[in-house]
């Protein structure tokens, strides 16, 4: 391909030559981010509720403390207290082979395991690590959101005869969700950017595409500036979506 120079220094032809690679990388980044936002939110809700679990009477009271509050607290502490990069490596090279291994995988072994690891290994590890990590951060957002709702709301609902789960679903969570939207939005943006770390275990997403191109041409401005702009557009898009959600769910909130 003929050299195309923009502004006298930017080799646009390199980007054009690898357009498909960047496009695939972009798709992979978006896919991983989307999956991890959805799974991380579900996990975060569950962990957040577990951290707040309380019961009044004897067997359930101890159960809440030892089976729910303690494990969830340790979980959150670990995933927030260690680097995501290390978590990705740990899960990819240590944890996953324990479960998916051609020789003696606890979950899957044999030929299926070999294929799975070869074709989807990095994807699986990346998604699992990022989900577990996001779940820890999102659970804190849920916890703070739920705790910020006035106790009187729960008392009013319970005194009408609504059970605890119904009170959560109809009264507390809808109000908490409104307050959680800004931090959840920030978290989604972090997730999108952090997904670039998965390139370290060989997942062909945006950062991996840039590294491939940089390696092929020994040119660094072009690929990294290109993906920077792509990430930037994606985060701006996410911020816009969150802003619209906030406007839509803002009705009736007095505080």
């Amino acid at each position: 391909m003929e050299q195309v120079l923009w502004f006298g220094w930017f080799r646009a032809d390199i980007i054009a030559e690898y357009a498909v690679l960047f496009w695939r990388g972009l798709q992979m980044t978006m896919l991983v981010t989307l999956i991890c936002i959805v799974q991380g939110t579900a996990l975060g809700l569950a962990i957040g509720m577990a951290r707040l679990a309380e019961a009044r009477h004897a067997p359930a009271k101890q159960l809440c403390k030892f089976a729910l509050r303690w494990p969830s607290t340790v979980y959150v502490s670990f995933f927030r207290g260690t680097p995501l990069f290390v978590q990705i490596l740990l899960i990819h090279f240590a944890v996953l082979p324990l479960f998916i291994n051609p020789a003696d995988g606890l979950l899957i072994s044999g030929e299926t395991a070999r294929n799975l690891k070869q074709n989807y290994g990095a994807f699986l590890s990346g998604v699992i690590a990022l989900t577990l990590n996001a779940g820890a951060y999102i659970s804190e957002i849920f916890r703070a959101g739920i705790q910020s709702i006035d106790r009187g709301q729960v008392e009013a609902s319970r005194s009408l005869g609504l059970s605890f789960p119904r009170t959560m679903f109809h009264v507390v969570l809808p109000q908490a969700f409104r307050r959680m939207l800004p931090p959840l939005g920030n978290n989604a943006i972090s997730l999108l950017k952090d997904s670039s770390l998965i390139s370290a275990i060989g997942l062909a997403e945006l950062a991996y595409a840039a590294r491939t191109v940089a390696g092929a041409y020994s040119r660094y401005w072009e690929p990294y500036l290109t993906i920077s702009l792509m990430y930037w557009v994606l985060t701006l898009g996410l911020a816009y979506v969150v802003k619209n959600l906030e406007a839509r769910y803002g009705r009736g909130d007095t505080r």
Binding site: G152, A156, L160, G161, V171, Q175, R178, D253, R255
Partner: peptide, 22 residues
């Protein structure tokens, strides 16, 4: 306790209406 409370109405000092509902 839920069944019992459904028979006992309560009105609070600070109203405690659900702000996200009409």
């Amino acid at each position: 306790v839920d069944a019992l409370r459904s028979e006992i109405g309560m009105v609070f000092q600070r109203f405690n209406l659900f702000p996200h509902k009409t």
